[in-house]
Nucleic acid binder design. Sequence first.
DNA 1: CCGGAGAAGTTGGTCTGACCACTTGACCGT
DNA 2: ACGGTCAAGTGGTCAGACCAACTTCTCCGG
Lengths: 240, 240
Amino acid sequence: MALQRVARRSVPDAVFEQILADVVSGEFAPGDALPSERRLAEVLGVSRPAVREALQRVAAAGLVEVRQGDTTTVRDYRRHAGMDLLPRLLLPGGELDLSVARSILEARLHVGPKVAELAAERAGARLGEPLETTVDALEKAADPVGRQRQALTFWEQVVDGADSIAFRLMFNGLRAAYEPAIEVLGPVLDAEVTRIEVYRSLAAAIVRGDGAGARRLAEDLLGAGTDGLLTAIRTLEEQE
Amino acid sequence: MALQRVARRSVPDAVFEQILADVVSGEFAPGDALPSERRLAEVLGVSRPAVREALQRVAAAGLVEVRQGDTTTVRDYRRHAGMDLLPRLLLPGGELDLSVARSILEARLHVGPKVAELAAERAGARLGEPLETTVDALEKAADPVGRQRQALTFWEQVVDGADSIAFRLMFNGLRAAYEPAIEVLGPVLDAEVTRIEVYRSLAAAIVRGDGAGARRLAEDLLGAGTDGLLTAIRTLEEQE
DNA sequence: CCGGAGAAGTTGGTCTGACCACTTGACCGT
DNA sequence: ACGGTCAAGTGGTCAGACCAACTTCTCCGG
């Protein structure tokens, strides 16, 4: 097997992960009071500063509300969390959550074409060289995961060209959710990523500033991949 | 004047804010090494644990990379940050950043109609009562800011109905960016939020499961507001 | 001369224990 | 019944120490 980087989670990381999992799984329900920092430290066998660092991050993620002098209470993560929670929702405990995957693909399918359109209108020829290089690399990539990586680079450049910070950060969020699942999703989405001609056409449309064309091609590209995966998901769901 | 909640930033909060500002403003450029924790603690006049809590959050936000034994280095926030950075980009130091505002409105205009469409297809009649209540409240709201708040509630319910966690979290991100600026943007967007009939029609389309209709109405609603603000922005930019 | 082992120094990681600040709720006097 | 007081519990902050990992420089052996 391929050697993996030794996971060296720091103590606060581990605590963070655990609290997050308990909140997301509903172990700690919205409105519940979290155990006090001292109690958590005792139960988890770590120091209070470690617990505090973890809680800070949980709070920053919007999952709990801490008030000095009062207990820390759990909030509804669906109402207050940001997209940075997506990865943990997509792979809770290693298994892919299909409804989350579907939701992410929907978002991708909806946002991608718009970004391509904006890139065509705003960047145009400026993207010529980088896109060409990336498509070449995509064509040469040997394995599905490698192809996914190149495809991500492709879209990263497109998003850059769209010159919209909101879409840019949105993309970062989707990518962060997707990357940990790349080993699982790569092979499933391989059909999309081997349609080199479509990537070439899309790049060409963007370079010539053809917003409508870029949009259509992106819809084609992402739509096919999405459809394939969605039907795969449906099949899996029916098996249950 | 209206009484305001006393702002009581904790020490780590203040440190976090300051580091964030320096990174976003480019004071600390990507690739730069951050001062060591001890040095920061000394310079800022706070304890090292306080600095650490702040740095943890900065790192969790994707703005820096910390490696044990090595210096903490700044990353390109446009590449690695999530949407939780939007509020700070929109209001860096109190003043509205127009290009960021434009970008957020673009995203809203693009995502809103899709969410309305999904809500119509997936929630339908279930949203009837809550939407009606909210529209009534929107009609009764006396001031622009109050209307904005009700409009946010309206969209919150629509997003709930869309039943897509990715769009839900995306919405949370946009809302978090928008809310701090609500005092500034509320009056400017008031034209959108006083078109009660359109809200009623949109709610009706959703309730009757008319996806295409809901989408069209949402485009109309958000498009008008967006156009108004975009031209306002353009005017401001030309004044400079 | 060159390459690698090793020592020193710097950086982040973690812990202990103490004390401050705030909130709550029970208690007590009016 | 009301108002204030106080004790207990919670998060907020600090100081200082030590551990662990990386970088760099040095020095030794080939």
